[in-house]
Amino acid sequence: VYKEIAITNGCINRMSKEELRAKLSEFKLETRGVKDVLKKRLKNYYKKQK
């Protein structure tokens, strides 16, 4: 499980701001904020899904 999260986090870290926004809107999450906030939001979402 932790390895999956680590791989997902690595992918998220390599995403551009536009990619992050697209992914967040896909999951109907808030898309406003600076890049670091968007990354954190997406990581938290994936963590809750596990």
Results as ranks from 00 to 15, higher is better:
residue 33 G to P: 01
residue 41 R to Q: 00
residue 45 Y to T: 00
residue 32 R to Q: 06
residue 50 K to L: 13
residue 28 K to D: 10
residue 44 N to F: 07
residue 50 K to A: 10
residue 2 Y to G: 15
residue 32 R to E: 04
residue 35 K to Q: 03
residue 10 G to H: 09
residue 24 L to K: 00
residue 49 Q to E: 09
residue 48 K to H: 09
residue 21 R to G: 02
residue 9 N to C: 13
residue 38 L to H: 00
residue 9 N to D: 08
residue 34 V to N: 15
residue 50 K to C: 08
residue 10 G to N: 10
residue 50 K to G: 07
residue 2 Y to N: 15
residue 34 V to Q: 08
residue 41 R to E: 00
residue 30 E to M: 03
residue 19 E to P: 00
residue 35 K to S: 05
residue 40 K to M: 04
residue 27 F to T: 05
residue 1 V to P: 05
residue 4 E to L: 07
residue 38 L to K: 02
residue 32 R to T: 07
residue 24 L to I: 01
residue 49 Q to Y: 12
residue 24 L to S: 05
residue 27 F to R: 09
residue 40 K to A: 06
residue 27 F to C: 15
residue 20 L to P: 01
residue 33 G to C: 04
residue 34 V to I: 12
residue 9 N to H: 12
residue 29 L to K: 04
residue 38 L to I: 05
residue 41 R to F: 01
residue 20 L to W: 02
residue 11 C to E: 15
residue 18 E to Y: 09
residue 5 I to R: 12
residue 12 I to C: 03
residue 1 V to E: 14
residue 7 I to T: 12
residue 27 F to W: 05
residue 14 R to L: 06
residue 30 E to Q: 06
residue 47 K to C: 05
residue 10 G to L: 06
residue 28 K to Q: 11
residue 24 L to R: 01
residue 42 L to C: 01
residue 20 L to E: 02
residue 2 Y to A: 14
residue 4 E to N: 13
residue 41 R to V: 00
residue 41 R to L: 00
residue 5 I to A: 14
residue 40 K to W: 00
residue 31 T to C: 13
residue 19 E to W: 03
residue 30 E to K: 06
residue 46 Y to T: 11
residue 48 K to Q: 09
residue 2 Y to R: 12
residue 47 K to F: 04
residue 25 S to T: 11
residue 23 K to G: 02
residue 4 E to K: 08
residue 48 K to D: 07
residue 35 K to R: 05
residue 28 K to Y: 06
residue 26 E to Q: 11
residue 41 R to S: 04
residue 7 I to N: 10
residue 37 V to H: 03
residue 14 R to N: 10
residue 48 K to A: 09
residue 46 Y to K: 07
residue 46 Y to A: 13
residue 38 L to A: 01
residue 8 T to V: 07
residue 34 V to R: 15
residue 21 R to L: 05
residue 43 K to H: 03
residue 36 D to H: 14
residue 35 K to H: 03
residue 12 I to E: 02
residue 26 E to K: 08
residue 39 K to I: 06
residue 49 Q to T: 12
residue 12 I to N: 04
residue 12 I to P: 03
residue 15 M to A: 03
residue 47 K to Q: 07
residue 19 E to V: 06
residue 4 E to V: 10
residue 5 I to L: 13
residue 10 G to Q: 11
residue 46 Y to W: 08
residue 16 S to W: 00
residue 41 R to N: 01
residue 28 K to M: 09
residue 50 K to Y: 10
residue 2 Y to F: 13
residue 28 K to H: 13
residue 15 M to K: 07
residue 44 N to Y: 08
residue 43 K to P: 02
residue 29 L to H: 00
residue 48 K to Y: 08
residue 42 L to Q: 01
residue 44 N to T: 12
residue 39 K to L: 04
residue 43 K to C: 02
residue 25 S to M: 12
residue 45 Y to I: 04
residue 18 E to N: 15
residue 18 E to C: 15
residue 42 L to E: 01
residue 45 Y to L: 04
residue 48 K to E: 09
residue 13 N to D: 08
residue 14 R to I: 03
residue 19 E to K: 07
residue 17 K to H: 04
residue 17 K to Q: 04
residue 4 E to Q: 12
residue 8 T to A: 10
residue 10 G to W: 06
residue 44 N to C: 09
residue 33 G to I: 00
residue 17 K to I: 07
residue 35 K to W: 02
residue 46 Y to I: 15
residue 9 N to Y: 09
residue 14 R to D: 07
residue 43 K to M: 05
residue 27 F to D: 04
residue 42 L to P: 00
residue 38 L to S: 05
residue 26 E to R: 05
residue 44 N to V: 07
residue 42 L to F: 05
residue 22 A to P: 01
residue 29 L to W: 03
residue 34 V to E: 05
residue 1 V to A: 14
residue 8 T to N: 11
residue 19 E to Q: 14
residue 17 K to R: 09
residue 18 E to G: 14
residue 15 M to I: 04
residue 8 T to E: 08
residue 39 K to D: 00
residue 38 L to W: 04
residue 19 E to D: 11
residue 14 R to Q: 12
residue 17 K to D: 03
residue 46 Y to Q: 10
residue 25 S to V: 09
residue 20 L to Q: 01
residue 26 E to P: 00
residue 43 K to R: 06
residue 4 E to A: 11
residue 32 R to D: 06
residue 19 E to M: 09
residue 17 K to L: 04
residue 35 K to L: 03
residue 41 R to A: 01
residue 50 K to M: 09
residue 48 K to T: 10
residue 4 E to G: 12
residue 44 N to K: 15
residue 16 S to Y: 05
residue 40 K to F: 00
residue 10 G to E: 10
residue 45 Y to F: 12
residue 23 K to F: 04
residue 9 N to L: 11
residue 5 I to C: 14
residue 3 K to V: 07
residue 11 C to T: 14
residue 3 K to N: 15
residue 13 N to H: 04
residue 39 K to Y: 01
residue 36 D to N: 14
residue 42 L to N: 01
residue 46 Y to P: 00
residue 38 L to P: 00
residue 7 I to E: 10
residue 26 E to G: 08
residue 16 S to T: 14
residue 31 T to M: 08
residue 32 R to Y: 05
residue 39 K to W: 00
residue 39 K to G: 03
residue 20 L to M: 08
residue 37 V to Q: 10
residue 29 L to C: 08
residue 8 T to W: 05
residue 9 N to E: 08
residue 8 T to M: 10
residue 8 T to H: 08
residue 21 R to Q: 09
residue 3 K to D: 09
residue 47 K to D: 04
residue 39 K to R: 11
residue 6 A to C: 10
residue 42 L to V: 03
residue 21 R to D: 02
residue 9 N to W: 07
residue 34 V to P: 06
residue 37 V to W: 03
residue 23 K to Q: 11
residue 37 V to S: 11
residue 31 T to I: 11
residue 13 N to T: 03
residue 23 K to T: 10
residue 15 M to R: 03
residue 6 A to Y: 14
residue 24 L to V: 02
residue 42 L to A: 01
residue 46 Y to L: 15
residue 20 L to A: 01
residue 14 R to C: 07
residue 50 K to D: 07
residue 45 Y to G: 01
residue 24 L to D: 00
residue 8 T to C: 08
residue 44 N to Q: 12
residue 2 Y to W: 12
residue 3 K to C: 11
residue 25 S to D: 12
residue 18 E to Q: 15
residue 28 K to F: 06
residue 50 K to T: 09
residue 7 I to H: 10
residue 36 D to C: 09
residue 10 G to S: 11
residue 15 M to G: 00
residue 17 K to W: 02
residue 10 G to P: 08
residue 41 R to T: 00
residue 29 L to R: 04
residue 8 T to L: 06
residue 23 K to P: 01
residue 44 N to R: 14
residue 28 K to G: 15
residue 13 N to M: 02
residue 23 K to V: 09
residue 25 S to H: 12
residue 20 L to T: 01
residue 45 Y to E: 04
residue 40 K to E: 06
residue 16 S to L: 02
residue 20 L to R: 00
residue 39 K to V: 09
residue 21 R to P: 03
residue 13 N to C: 02
residue 8 T to S: 14
residue 43 K to L: 04
residue 47 K to G: 06
residue 15 M to P: 00
residue 22 A to C: 13
residue 7 I to P: 12
residue 11 C to L: 13
residue 15 M to H: 02
residue 31 T to G: 02
residue 2 Y to T: 15
residue 12 I to Q: 01
residue 40 K to C: 03
residue 13 N to I: 04
residue 19 E to I: 03
residue 25 S to E: 11
residue 10 G to C: 08
residue 37 V to T: 14
residue 27 F to L: 15
residue 12 I to L: 06
residue 48 K to L: 08
residue 1 V to M: 12
residue 35 K to D: 03
residue 19 E to F: 02
residue 1 V to S: 13
residue 28 K to R: 13
residue 31 T to W: 10
residue 49 Q to L: 12
residue 30 E to D: 15
residue 3 K to A: 12
residue 31 T to V: 11
residue 50 K to H: 10
residue 12 I to R: 03
residue 34 V to F: 08
residue 5 I to E: 13
residue 34 V to K: 15
residue 5 I to H: 14
residue 12 I to Y: 03
residue 6 A to T: 14
residue 45 Y to W: 13
residue 47 K to N: 10
residue 13 N to W: 01
residue 15 M to Q: 01
residue 33 G to L: 00
residue 12 I to G: 02
residue 30 E to H: 03
